[in-house]
Amino acid sequence: MKILVPVKRVIDYNVKVRVKTDETGVDLANVKMSMNPFCEIAVEEAVRLKEKGIATEVVAVSIGVTPAQETLRTALAMGADRAILLTTDVDPEPLAVAKLLKAVFEEEKPDAVIMGKQAIDGDNNATGQMLAALLDLPQATFASEVVVEGGKAKVTREVDGGLQTLEVALPAIITVDLRLNEPRFASLPNIMKAKKKPIDIKEASAYGVDLAPHLKVTKVTEPPKRSAGIKVESVGELVAKLKDAGVI
């Protein structure tokens, strides 16, 4: 069984995000970039399936600027076997990413795509679903448990109000949620091995997909600062203050 794992290079989620002074976007100059945390969970799950003897090959794929190679190296250090990078300087929208992944899927013919439910930069939560639709394949989103058996995947997903278990025939698209697993630390020997694993670098433009954005960002601003709260002495005072504020 071959698993394709798309991974995205994003601003490290522990970095305090700053808005550019001209309000055109987030300042990425000299900012630590890392693998999207949901993608990390997807890589971990694929590697665990390989370690269990269920998967035979894990292929990581990324779309983005050349330094996204570092993100792929992290996936390789975690245990992916090889990687593909489609280079582009534009920041493609989910539909364009899904179309490019469809093209990679058709080249690679994997038995499953395991990917993050969303990237923490755009927070779109769209690419996995779009990819399933474009490929006309089953999808199981927000996975908190994945069991692969007999050409099928049993996926427990986190939904409002509880858990739902789906069974999907493979190949399928599985998007993962935070509670699926805890990604491993990359050991130094594996980091060194990863340097020797192949990364196939191609131009994204070669796939004939329209990468031009269809949305225009007009302005990015910081959320308004919260003003300090006050302490009240009694329930009565609390109710009075809430009434003053016109909220009850």
Binding site: D12, Y13, N14, V15, K32, S34, M35, P37, E40, T74, A77, F185, A186, S187, L188, P189, I191, M192, K195
Partner: peptide, 27 residues
């Protein structure tokens, strides 16, 4: 750093090592 650490592992000076891949791991 990776090169320096792997030299030390090969020389038997370090048993094992890991490098934080993101800020969360470093933290």
């Amino acid at each position: 750093i990776e090169d320096a650490l792997s030299t030390l592992i090969e020389a038997g000076k370090i048993n094992d090592a890991t490098i934080a891949q993101n800020e969360a791991q470093a933290n």
